[in-house]
Computed example of a mutant assay.
Amino acid sequence: MFQVGDAVSYGTSGVCTIAEKKSVKLAGRPCECYILRPVYDSTMKICVPCDSQVLLQRMRALPSKQELLDLLQEPAPEHNPDPEARKEQYRQTLQSGDRHDLLQMIRDIYTERRHRHAMGKQLSAYEDTALREAQNILHSEFAYTLGIDPQEVPDFIAGELDKAAN
């Protein structure tokens, strides 16, 4: 499985390093846990019990540079006009943490934001929050894998999407 020192993506926390594996007391009983430290938030520490399949499934190996670039070459998603259906789809996407689905969701929200901006409107609070959470996950993966600053990721992605569109 995973080893101390490995970099992984964990839920909505983004890229983390496995700082240690140790026994801690949870709910009064000893439990073996991975201790994760988010790469881009040194103040946080995450304890993942080794016997919790649900939480262990949130730990995913990082993609290669080529896998990330291939994701950006995929066609834009079909936009679902039903806001409630989109909200549920976004919730499930964030919960799954699947990078393909996250990138599709970000592209869909970007398109919706441009459309609404043209009409003088803004994204709903839920779409705005979902966008930020998805960006937190993906931007940290892109930054870590590509060796760039997280603030450079939006421009990098925009540039790659422009290349794919031409």
Results as ranks from 00 to 15, higher is better:
33 C>V: 10
37 R>H: 13
23 S>F: 04
89 Q>F: 05
114 R>V: 12
101 D>H: 07
53 Q>Y: 02
10 Y>N: 09
144 Y>F: 15
150 P>S: 01
71 L>G: 05
145 T>W: 03
22 K>P: 04
70 D>I: 04
145 T>C: 00
41 D>I: 00
27 A>I: 05
115 H>E: 13
92 Q>F: 05
58 R>M: 07
142 F>I: 10
28 G>S: 02
82 D>T: 03
31 C>V: 00
136 N>P: 02
139 H>R: 12
128 D>N: 10
51 D>E: 09
42 S>M: 01
85 A>K: 15
36 L>P: 06
57 Q>A: 12
133 E>P: 00
120 G>H: 02
29 R>A: 09
120 G>I: 07
3 Q>N: 08
13 S>I: 09
39 V>Q: 13
41 D>V: 00
52 S>P: 08
120 G>R: 07
113 R>A: 13
89 Q>G: 11
62 L>K: 11
85 A>G: 01
130 A>N: 09
58 R>S: 11
21 K>H: 07
123 L>R: 08
77 P>F: 04
27 A>V: 10
41 D>Q: 01
37 R>Y: 01
15 V>K: 08
35 I>K: 02
42 S>T: 12
90 Y>L: 12
106 I>A: 03
131 L>G: 00
42 S>W: 01
147 G>D: 06
1 M>N: 09
129 T>S: 14
